[in-house]
């Protein structure tokens, strides 16, 4: 096994067919079992990084590399990345009319298991119920159409439910905490902590604006992205400093090269 679950090397990316770069040389490494927080002001490129890692076709990589377990994944289609264990919890999950969560997740589980090795329907239902229990969801949630008419909090919980069922090796969570009230935040954090305990190898990249979620999920490292680059990395205390002083001091440091 490679030393790092995720290694981003001098990554540059732009919106497909667009001139200007959004990611302008991102470097980041995440070891097995680690949780890293990625913070930064709006528009700094966090979601773009998350989507490029997941293989979103709307972005072109113009330089650098993304390694997963030591292998470059840039040539892999998004579905292959997912089947190999990469998971993106979306900042804005799609609504899929007419497809129930249960049907969707069973199809996804089977996609990972491969043809001829489909999961037993009853076993799957049992597993799904257990996972829903972990996230304190009602049983009938599984019969609702994916994200259709969900509140913001329900959508985020649904992302974590998918993560819990699919058991990725790398989870990129894009602002999973935004729009959650305190109870939902605790449930979601508790879910992530449980998954991280279950799988000692799980790497988590937690993208957030606020320090709030870091009171419940303790990061090993905190990175700050501004203008498409990681401009500062440190321990959990960095998040405290950002909470107190905002990002301006970092911007100032960037402006006056010393």
């Amino acid at each position: 096994m490679a030393e790092h679950v995720l290694e981003v090397r001098d990554l540059r990316a732009r919106v497909a067919e667009d001139e200007s770069e959004i990611l302008m040389g991102v470097d980041l490494t995440l070891g097995p079992g680690q949780i890293h927080a990625l913070m930064g002001p709006n528009g700094s490129g966090k979601s773009t990084l998350a989507k490029v890692i997941a293989g979103h076709p709307g972005y072109d990589v113009t330089g650098g590399d993304v390694l997963y377990d030591g292998e470059s994944i840039l040539e892999w289609e998004p579905d292959e990345r997912a089947r190999r264990g990469i998971f993106l919890a979306f900042q804005y999950p799609s609504e899929i009319p007419g497809v129930t969560i249960s049907n969707f997740l069973r199809t996804a589980v089977n996609a990972r298991r491969g043809e001829g090795n489909e999961v037993d329907v009853f076993e799957f239902q049992k597993e799904l119920r257990e996972r829903m229990g972990l996230l304190e969801m009602d049983a009938d949630f599984a019969d609702r159409y994916v994200n259709e008419g969900f509140s913001g909090g329900e959508k985020k919980r649904n992302e974590i439910l998918q993560m819990a069922v699919l058991r990725p090796r790398l989870a990129v969570m894009d602002e999973t905490d935004s729009g959650l009230d305190i109870d939902a935040l605790k449930i979601v954090s508790n879910g992530v902590n449980t998954l991280s305990k279950e799988d000692a190898e799980l790497g988590v990249l937690l993208i957030t604006h606020y320090k709030r979620i870091l009171n419940y999920i303790e990061p090993d490292r905190v990175h700050v992205m501004i203008g498409g680059r990681i401009v500062e990395s440190g321990g959990p205390e960095l998040a405290e400093k950002l909470e107190e002083h905002g990002y301006d001091w970092l911007r100032e440091e960037l402006a006056s090269p010393t």
């Binding site: 998004p78 579905d79 979306f90 799609s94 899929i96 996804a108």
Partner: peptide, 13 residues
């Protein structure tokens, strides 16, 4: 396309 990407990001071809 957005829905497609969402489903593919869960492993569906």
């Amino acid at each position: 396309e957005g829905m497609l990407f969402y489903l593919m990001s869960r492993g569906l071809t």
